[in-house]
Design a protein around this nucleic acid. Sequence first.
DNA 1: CTAATTCTGATTGACGTACCTCAGAGAGCC
DNA 2: GGCTCTCTGAGGTACGTCAATCAGAATTAG
Lengths: 342, 342
Amino acid sequence: MGKPTVHDIAEEAGVSLATVDRVLNERPGVRSMTARRVHNAIDKLGYVRDVHAANLARGRHYRFSFVLPEGESQFLRALREAIEEAGAGLRLDRAELQTIEVPLNDSVAMIRALETLQAQQIDGLAIMANETPVVRDMIAHMKESGIAVVTLVSDQPNAERDHFVGIDNIAAGRTAGVLMGRFVGGRSGKIIVVVNTTHARDMVQRRLGFDAVMREQFPMLNALPSLEGHDELERTAQVIERALGSHEDVVGIYCAGAGTRGVTKIIAEHDLADKLIVIGHELTAHSEQALRDGLLDVVITQNVGHLVRSATRVLRAKCDGREIIESQERIRIEIVLRENLP
Amino acid sequence: MGKPTVHDIAEEAGVSLATVDRVLNERPGVRSMTARRVHNAIDKLGYVRDVHAANLARGRHYRFSFVLPEGESQFLRALREAIEEAGAGLRLDRAELQTIEVPLNDSVAMIRALETLQAQQIDGLAIMANETPVVRDMIAHMKESGIAVVTLVSDQPNAERDHFVGIDNIAAGRTAGVLMGRFVGGRSGKIIVVVNTTHARDMVQRRLGFDAVMREQFPMLNALPSLEGHDELERTAQVIERALGSHEDVVGIYCAGAGTRGVTKIIAEHDLADKLIVIGHELTAHSEQALRDGLLDVVITQNVGHLVRSATRVLRAKCDGREIIESQERIRIEIVLRENLP
DNA sequence: CTAATTCTGATTGACGTACCTCAGAGAGCC
DNA sequence: GGCTCTCTGAGGTACGTCAATCAGAATTAG
């Protein structure tokens, strides 16, 4: 009395194996009456198709591509590593991961990359990109040709993606705000906010959440206008240094995007670790060390391993026409202090 | 040119399929010379055995049992639910999960339960229990009869378990300590510490970590001796109420174990939400609501879903004689505020 | 050098599913 | 009645592996 198989279904429904197969795989040539009989049998016996045996039989293997922005930020590096690692593990599971890098804000390159993937007949796409009409249209194209699409890290709510894999960035900003307010401990003063660019959706949302909390819960704190670091260490360090020079009563720095290295550089150089509360995003080798050294007080992060695994799980489910388990795919906003470093 | 199969290995090594099979499954009847040739071929082609096909062929299915303490704490309830949920998903993966509940501190019941499982020839055991000689010996027994064993939530470092699935409770205590210190914001005063029992290993460790941080970083705070709530709402509430009565300058409550409901009851009744910093453990339906209501400031938690999935992954790997990926099995200490609730 | 023993090859049938072909049943049309 | 048509059944092959058998080859012992 193991799990029911197609044979059991055939017997229960009083039809042949071939017919059950036709129903299961939605092949033509079955009267709706007969199909209903088969479905009833499936429900009655609680049959679930053995996905592994099925994949074995059809010699299927999934090809998923990750499209990421080009760049050497620590986060991207960690993400690429996670993709590689997950890919190694997934080879056993008949799935193959591939990473494509596209220069930020280069529409032509993006179109070319996605068209190539489409031509390659990949099965699924996980894309991390800024929200532009070009990307939105390409996603629609991909979907039309039967490719499952998820957006990664930064959502594209107006595109017809199947799912978004990433954190709620407004909540992430709120979390940063609360921790900032609590950690400064009742003092009043100014907060420097650094982003890599004010054009990215995730940055905007984090800022939004941060400001909301400041307004609601910590009116004695004044979050200054966003400084742009453009993903460059020196530039980030410079803008912060200038801001520190022109404001006397800075009590904290919130680094909402990449650029943590620029922040920690200034903190270390000016020996500000004990004076300022510094909150950054994304746990990487560097930010981990900065936490240990006390240059950063808090890191808000999303687990890149979870991101990648969730993306592949979702893509796979979509390919198989299965439903996903929402609760399992929700990416948590993790708070990391020196004390709970993994 | 897909992945190499046993056929490719046979050809490469110049032996028959049967011989390859004998080598792969370590069956007798192969000269070491021949076996070496096969191994070389495996290395050369980078062959990895298709676990799903293998399981399909041998009709294997894994039977794992979770042994948990009896009780109606919110955490246990969540854990049981997670096991059930994971079990449903794993049916597709030829694994079957079963939960057994054993009264806390009842050696006879524990022995009986484990002996039954042993007789049932289960493949793996995940056990959450207090550290006693009885449990230690039974674990050794189970291991001898070829059952994989992991300890869950609370470790048994002296038992011959294959692995521990859970958080580092010292670090968890430290994390609670730092957040307590930071959140009270420079004030000095006393901290009430509540545990369910001072006999459980995880409680002891959390207290240890908490005290260490208090001593090192927040000397102006005085953590009072542990109060025992014994997992009972009323009793927990009572001891806290009494403590609040006999100390004037309490600034925070750290609830290191189950019993959050007792704490929040007192907080709500005495309207202390704004006066005290309250930190608890384990995110459950109740503690989640308490966070939303502001009755709790922080919850330190471990994701029960991760716990269960990690346990099954590890058990499975051990059954197959595979190595586990350490980094993937490390359970994170999660910090949850109202702002980053999942 | 033969006999006993150990190793190896060839072959077959599972496991649960997909996919294909071929034949036949039944219905509807002229 | 003969003709399409659509639906269904029967059966086979394949996927990658395990497990078992049997026969024959190679090795070792006597």
